[in-house]
Design a protein around this nucleic acid. Sequence first.
DNA 1: TTACGGGCACAACTAATGGTTGTGGCTCGC
DNA 2: GCGAGCCACAACCATTAGTTGTGCCCGTAA
Lengths: 310, 310
Amino acid sequence: MDLEAVRTFVAAADAGQFQEAAAALSITQQAASKRIAGLEKDLSVRLFTRTARGVALTVDGQAFLPHARELLRVADRADASVRPGRRALRVDVHSRRVAPAVLLEDFYRAHPEIDLDVVTLTADVAGAIAAVEAGTVDATFHAVTMPARDLPATIRTARVIDETHELLVGPAHPLANARTVTPARLVRHRIWMPGMDPGSEWAAYYAELAAAFGLTIDVIGPSFGNESLMAELADSAELATLVGARSRYLWPDSYDLRRIPVRDPMPIYPMSLIWRADNRHPALGRLRAYLGSRRADLSGTEVWTPRWRR
Amino acid sequence: MDLEAVRTFVAAADAGQFQEAAAALSITQQAASKRIAGLEKDLSVRLFTRTARGVALTVDGQAFLPHARELLRVADRADASVRPGRRALRVDVHSRRVAPAVLLEDFYRAHPEIDLDVVTLTADVAGAIAAVEAGTVDATFHAVTMPARDLPATIRTARVIDETHELLVGPAHPLANARTVTPARLVRHRIWMPGMDPGSEWAAYYAELAAAFGLTIDVIGPSFGNESLMAELADSAELATLVGARSRYLWPDSYDLRRIPVRDPMPIYPMSLIWRADNRHPALGRLRAYLGSRRADLSGTEVWTPRWRR
DNA sequence: TTACGGGCACAACTAATGGTTGTGGCTCGC
DNA sequence: GCGAGCCACAACCATTAGTTGTGCCCGTAA
């Protein structure tokens, strides 16, 4: 199926004749006729009945028409997603399973008219900031671990997410039936978070968290995927892991896993939206406004955040 | 943008190399390379970075990938909509603004996984039945005005819609503030329903309705579109028109029009789903079940239906 | 009835495209 | 340093998509 032929089909359906459609596409009537004939051959179905005064859609043509329009719309969107200059808002997230990605999905649902592309650069903060500076992405979510004065002058940041944590355990774990749990109660429990890059901001965060409360957090070791981790947790009375409260890391239901909020204090993973000051993309402002409106009010709650000493 | 190139792009993104993607598509590595190069030229953007061990997506490639997948999906659907043998369920409705079309939309929303195409044959009952017999459409909605024994043997019908009526009037009309209205109260009010084909089942219905209650219903005369009709109604203290209760003929709000239910008795426009007995399309059964579940219970209500004498 | 005009399809030709094979260069790993 | 694996470029060829020229059909008006 050829997109140009589809475009010709739609033009002809709108015009009611090949002549005019051809003119609109700056080709000859014969070329339009050929395109349609080719499309009809591709689909092995007749799309138009030829009359003396032009053409009329067949039933098949009628059924095909909305699909054809949709196809052209999607093609335009695909094109717009990369067209330099006026492409869709492109936001980098660390992982598609954590809070930023979830919030972006909510944003997209709230504003379906905004073209949004979510990408994962799999870069560290510095690399992501470089991508923002270069303009390959419009914004990124990261914990900003360095003082503001060390950031490039063109970069702006805003703290938009305070992600709280939940302990994920199997039904046999001693904490399985707790309503909430404090960091202090996690001492001597083994917390397992495999698959984390040792140099990453994540690893640094959990190392500092472990140090602050005297916890045992294994961030080292290969990951064999979430399914494997979930299966291990489900069977174990000792293993537990920490997940972001809004992460969709896991579907605990299928393994009867429990998500237990951690509080008193709440360990907060702080994330900022990072963008370039001179970025005039209209959707960027709307994203910032949306994220601001979604920010939880944690005043009056005892929280813990790291100091990012390395 | 060429769909084959897009397909190659997706295959290469999945495989991580051109070689394997090419093999999957039964072309040479060089052809795949050319296709991608062509696509990159079309979009004037680089989609892959070439490495010694294959290829990796650029940020633009990452952003483009989901759009590319969607494009192929939509293309498949478009193809399936007309592919003989296993096409989408195709249902004919008289008009996209009356109850059958509204119900089909509800059905589609309730079962988004079912491929459904709504077409308008603009044929009379006999023509629509012929189309059903020929298999160009799977089903049609019509008032069945002939006795069952006159229908072709392969045709099945089921009464699925009892459409009630509402009087549509402007704010200056004497009935504008009525909660409900009876047919008897409409005597001597002028009811205007322009744009109706004199030979159609609709015209026959309203002629019989008028005769039964002594009403004045003008079904003759050209229609200048709904906007024009609405504007006339809005300004007039005499004109009124009848619309189906579930039709989306008009957006009365914009003209401060009122929709007043007609009852005691309720004039019912009965519509049947018409299909071919040997049609094994799986979605057809589900549509019938859905329509059955949506049918209003009118027992205990005084109704009026025509006898379709011509 | 006939003549005309508008519109689509077929034929012939040409330019461009998309495919193939052959080959060279790059990078990684041994 | 060398071979293996993979991509890009070149040359060539077959097919396609476009153009112009022309014929046919059908509805309308003389």
